[in-house]
């Protein structure tokens, strides 16, 4: 029985973490973005997922270029965020669920994926910011984390097709998990943005809307592009949509969009937040 109750997709701009640290949620610049999480808070309070499987990319906290895995799956009993160079460290730990992590690892390797497995792993703002956004008032985080990192930093990147297939295989693992846990999947990052070079500040709202319109009902529509096409269309960092594709793949059966919020700009980024329900399953 599939325990995936839904999917949350969100930008993870580090500046959002700074705004949270300064309490700027009602500030006119930030409010349109933060308001996108109000219905997600209600949904989370209703669904109370026990586990979050988070597809994200590390920006140089846990992984350096000395060893850069294409896919890495956390299998720790606890994860922490640390200072990434600008002095903000979220101090609440993220509890792990290593037995589910290993079940996912067993399943994806049996299906011919070759992830790096991490029993010790720091998670950066790409996990920390979504957790802070989803559970802003939690005295401690109780939703257990399975972090799955995808290389969106150093080319060659995995293809969109490969990322969607990884997600689908993780979805099979979640469907065959025998534990009682309710699970939410998350894809973080994007949408269009580019931080470096002469094209810094590049956005592509048309492509962002294409992604938002298709990620739920028709994620295959994104597969007509390879990763460098997406760099061209969405910017160097807009390629983080790969994390969204993987998370979408982990939802089986009927996927219903409940909420979507698109807001430009947050820092240099076209920010987006989406919530999908994944309750009705097709028969296996």
């Amino acid at each position: 029985m599939n325990k995936v109750v839904g999917g949350i997709f969100t930008s993870h701009v580090p500046g959002i973490g700074g705004a949270i640290a300064k309490g700027l949620q009602q500030d006119p610049y930030w409010k349109p973005f933060f308001d996108g999480f109000l219905p997600i808070h209600d949904w989370l309070a209703r669904e109370k997922p026990d586990v979050a499987v988070v597809f994200y990319n590390d920006h140089g906290l846990n992984f350096f270029l000395d060893k850069m895995p294409t896919f890495a799956i956390g299998a720790a009993s606890e994860y922490r965020h640390e200072d990434e160079g600008w002095g903000i460290a979220f101090n609440k730990p993220y509890p792990g669920i290593p037995e589910l992590s290993w079940h996912i690892i067993e399943t994806v390797v049996a299906n011919e994926f070759d992830p790096v497995t991490c029993q010790a792993m720091l998670v950066d703002h790409a996990v920390a910011v979504p957790y802070e956004l989803c559970w802003p008032d939690a005295p401690e985080f109780t939703t257990k984390l399975v972090p799955i990192a995808i290389n969106t930093v150093q080319h060659p990147l995995p293809s969109p097709k490969r990322c969607l297939e990884l997600g689908r295989t993780v979805g099979h693992a979640l469907a065959s998990w025998q534990g009682p846990e309710k699970i939410v999947v998350m894809g973080t990052g994007g949408l269009s943005h580019q931080l470096e070079g002469k094209r810094a500040g590049f956005l592509n709202k048309e492509f962002d809307h294409f992604c938002m319109d298709n990620i739920g009902p028709n994620p295959e529509a994104l597969l007509k592009y390879d990763s460098l096409d997406i760099v061209e269309l969405a910017g160097s960092q807009g390629v983080e949509i790969l994390n969204w594709l993987a998370a979408r793949g982990a939802m089986q059966g009927k996927v219903v969009e409940l909420e979507a919020n698109y807001h430009v700009p947050i820092s240099n980024t076209a920010a987006a937040t989406m919530l999908f329900e994944n309750r009705e399953k097709v028969a296996a």
């Binding site: 470096e196 810094a200 500040g201 956005l203 969009e257 409940l258 979507a260 430009v264 700009p265």
Partner: peptide, 28 residues
């Protein structure tokens, strides 16, 4: 960094982003 790389002032860089400003919500 964006301003430095594109050869504009910080205010100009921010203004260019704000000029593309858009907020779209949809809810089931």
């Amino acid at each position: 960094l964006g301003a430095l790389q594109t050869g504009v002032s910080l205010d100009e860089f921010k203004a260019a982003l704000l000029a593309q400003g858009e907020t779209q919500r949809r809810s089931a």
